[in-house]
Amino acid sequence: TTVHLNGVTYTFPNPEEARKFVEKLAKTLNLKVEVHNGTYHIE
């Protein structure tokens, strides 16, 4: 599972880890999250 954040790409072997990371980040920084083909894009 891949996460794109400010031009940096993070790869998680575990989709659940990626989801938790994204949710925590989005909540902390009040960001918008979009998912395209299983890839998270955070703005």
Rank of each mutant, 00 (worst) to 15 (best):
T1Y: 05
T1K: 10
T1I: 06
T1C: 15
T1L: 06
T1M: 09
T1R: 12
T1A: 09
T1W: 07
T2F: 12
T2G: 08
T2L: 13
T2C: 15
T2N: 13
T2Y: 13
T2S: 11
T2I: 13
V3W: 01
H4A: 06
H4L: 12
H4T: 06
H4P: 01
H4F: 12
H4G: 02
H4M: 10
H4Y: 13
H4V: 14
H4E: 06
H4C: 15
H4Q: 07
L5S: 02
L5D: 03
L5E: 02
L5A: 04
L5G: 02
N6P: 06
N6W: 14
N6F: 15
N6Q: 07
N6V: 06
N6I: 09
N6A: 10
G7Q: 06
G7T: 05
G7N: 11
G7Y: 08
G7R: 06
V8M: 09
V8E: 09
V8C: 15
V8Q: 09
V8I: 11
T9K: 13
T9E: 11
T9Q: 11
T9G: 05
T9R: 13
T9H: 09
Y10F: 13
Y10P: 00
Y10K: 05
Y10E: 02
Y10W: 11
Y10M: 13
Y10H: 10
Y10G: 02
T11D: 08
T11P: 07
T11L: 12
T11V: 12
T11A: 09
T11W: 10
T11Q: 11
T11M: 11
T11C: 15
F12V: 01
F12N: 00
F12H: 00
F12T: 00
F12G: 00
P13Q: 10
P13L: 10
P13H: 07
P13K: 10
P13C: 15
P13G: 08
P13A: 11
N14L: 06
N14V: 05
N14P: 01
N14D: 11
N14A: 06
N14W: 04
P15R: 08
P15V: 07
P15W: 08
P15I: 07
P15F: 12
P15M: 10
P15G: 10
P15A: 11
P15H: 11
E16G: 08
E16H: 10
E16C: 15
E16I: 10
E17I: 12
E17A: 13
E17S: 13
E17Q: 11
E17H: 08
E17C: 15
E17K: 11
A18L: 04
A18W: 03
A18R: 01
A18Q: 01
A18F: 05
A18G: 03
R19I: 11
R19T: 06
R19E: 06
R19M: 10
R19Y: 09
R19Q: 07
R19C: 14
R19F: 09
R19A: 07
R19H: 07
K20Y: 08
K20E: 09
K20V: 08
K20H: 09
K20L: 10
K20Q: 10
K20M: 10
K20G: 07
F21V: 02
F21M: 03
F21D: 00
F21R: 00
F21A: 02
F21E: 01
V22F: 02
V22G: 01
V22M: 03
V22L: 04
V22E: 00
E23V: 08
E23M: 10
E23L: 09
E23R: 05
E23Q: 07
E23G: 04
E23C: 15
E23T: 06
K24R: 11
K24M: 13
K24G: 06
K24D: 12
K24N: 12
K24Y: 14
L25V: 06
L25G: 00
L25E: 01
L25S: 01
L25A: 03
L25N: 01
L25Y: 03
L25T: 03
L25K: 01
A26I: 11
A26V: 11
A26T: 09
A26H: 04
A26W: 04
K27L: 12
K27C: 15
T28W: 13
T28S: 12
L29A: 09
L29T: 08
L29E: 08
L29G: 12
L29H: 15
L29N: 07
N30A: 05
N30T: 03
N30P: 06
N30H: 11
L31V: 14
L31D: 02
L31S: 04
K32T: 07
K32P: 03
K32E: 04
K32M: 06
K32Q: 05
K32V: 09
K32F: 07
V33T: 01
V33M: 04
V33G: 01
V33Y: 09
V33F: 14
V33K: 00
V33E: 01
V33I: 13
V33C: 14
V33D: 01
E34L: 10
E34R: 12
E34Q: 09
E34S: 13
V35K: 04
V35T: 03
V35D: 03
V35N: 04
V35M: 11
V35C: 15
H36A: 04
H36D: 04
H36R: 14
H36I: 15
H36G: 02
H36P: 00
N37P: 01
N37F: 04
N37G: 06
N37S: 03
N37D: 13
N37Q: 04
G38M: 02
G38H: 05
G38Y: 02
G38L: 02
G38T: 02
G38Q: 02
G38N: 05
T39H: 15
T39F: 08
T39P: 03
T39Q: 15
T39E: 15
T39D: 14
T39Y: 08
T39M: 13
T39S: 14
Y40S: 04
Y40P: 04
Y40G: 03
Y40A: 04
Y40F: 09
Y40C: 14
H41Q: 05
H41A: 02
H41V: 14
H41W: 15
H41I: 14
I42E: 04
I42F: 10
I42Y: 03
I42Q: 02
I42N: 03
I42L: 14
E43C: 15
E43Q: 12
E43Y: 15
E43N: 10
E43R: 07
E43A: 08
